[in-house]
Amino acid sequence: MSWKTVCSTDEVGEHSIKLFDVDGVSILVANVGDGFRAYPPVCPHMEEPLIESGICANGQLTCTKHLWQWDMRTGEPKGPAEKCMLLYEVKAENGQVLVNLEQELEYDFDEDDDDDY
């Protein structure tokens, strides 16, 4: 386990997201009301930076580029989304949000795959 402090619990407002850098790794932290979630910073569809394109509403995160949506708590896809969001293990302790950074989570965008149609 490699727990790292990402931010304090009051840095991310309820039902919103904020981007942090932890030792060169970008982490998107969400405050879901009764807890926190942490994701890779880009949309799993086409790498859009979610801090720019993401909107939080009704417990869902929406990437406004192509309207992929996810349940913020589980990362499960909604609507047209075809891929889950990846989630880091996260915990809140002593007013700090900590993330298990054992390994950086990244999506596979299959850029060089000729059979990805």
């Binding site: 880009v42 086409m46 790498e47 930076p49 965008f109 850029e111």
Partner: peptide
């Protein structure tokens, strides 16, 4: 970096957002 109607690492036609690698 992505364009306003496109995504990073792609060419995007601004007209209807078709994208190409």
């Amino acid at each position: 970096e992505g364009s306003p109607s496109g995504n990073p690492r792609h060419m995007t036609c601004m007209f209807h957002a078709w994208q190409f690698d």
